[in-house]
Computed example of a mutant assay.
Amino acid sequence: MSITAKKPRPKKCRVESCRASFVPKASFQTWCSPDCGVVIARAKQEKQRKSFAQRERREIKVRKEKLKKRGDHMREAQQAFNAYIRARDQIAGHLCISSGKPLDWSGNAVDAGHYRSVGSAPHLRFDERNCHAQSKQDNRFLSGNAVDYRIGLTARIGLEAVEALEADQSVRKYTIDDLKAIKAEYRAKTRELKKGHAA
Rank of each mutant, 00 (worst) to 15 (best):
V162G: 11
R156Q: 05
N139W: 13
R172D: 00
K173S: 01
G152I: 00
Q169V: 04
H132P: 02
Y174D: 04
Q134L: 10
L179E: 00
N139M: 15
L142T: 05
E163C: 10
G152K: 06
A184G: 04
S135P: 04
R140C: 15
I176E: 10
Q169F: 14
V162Y: 14
Q137C: 07
S170I: 01
E163V: 12
C131G: 03
E163H: 12
V171E: 11
D138V: 02
C131S: 12
I182E: 05
A155G: 04
A184T: 07
I151D: 08
A181Y: 02
A133H: 07
G144D: 03
K180Y: 04
E166R: 12
A161P: 01
K136T: 12
D178R: 05
S170C: 02
I182T: 02
A133M: 03
N130L: 12
A155Q: 13
N130V: 07
K180D: 01
N139T: 09
D138T: 02
I157G: 10
A188D: 09
K173M: 04
D178C: 01
R150G: 11
R150D: 05
F141G: 04
G144R: 01
R156Y: 05
A181W: 04
R172T: 12
N139H: 13
C131R: 05
L179Q: 00
Y186F: 15
T175C: 00
H132L: 07
F141T: 05
A181L: 08
N130I: 11
N145I: 00
Y149I: 09
T154D: 09
R172L: 13
C131I: 02
L159G: 03
L159F: 06
D178I: 06
T154G: 12
A146M: 07
T154R: 15
R172V: 15
R156G: 00
Y174G: 03
V171T: 14
R150T: 09
Y174I: 11
A181H: 09
L165H: 07
D148E: 14
D168S: 06
A133V: 05
Y186T: 10
V147K: 14
R140S: 09
L165S: 13
R187S: 11
A167G: 02
D148T: 06
E166T: 06
A133P: 10
D148K: 08
L179V: 03
Y186I: 06
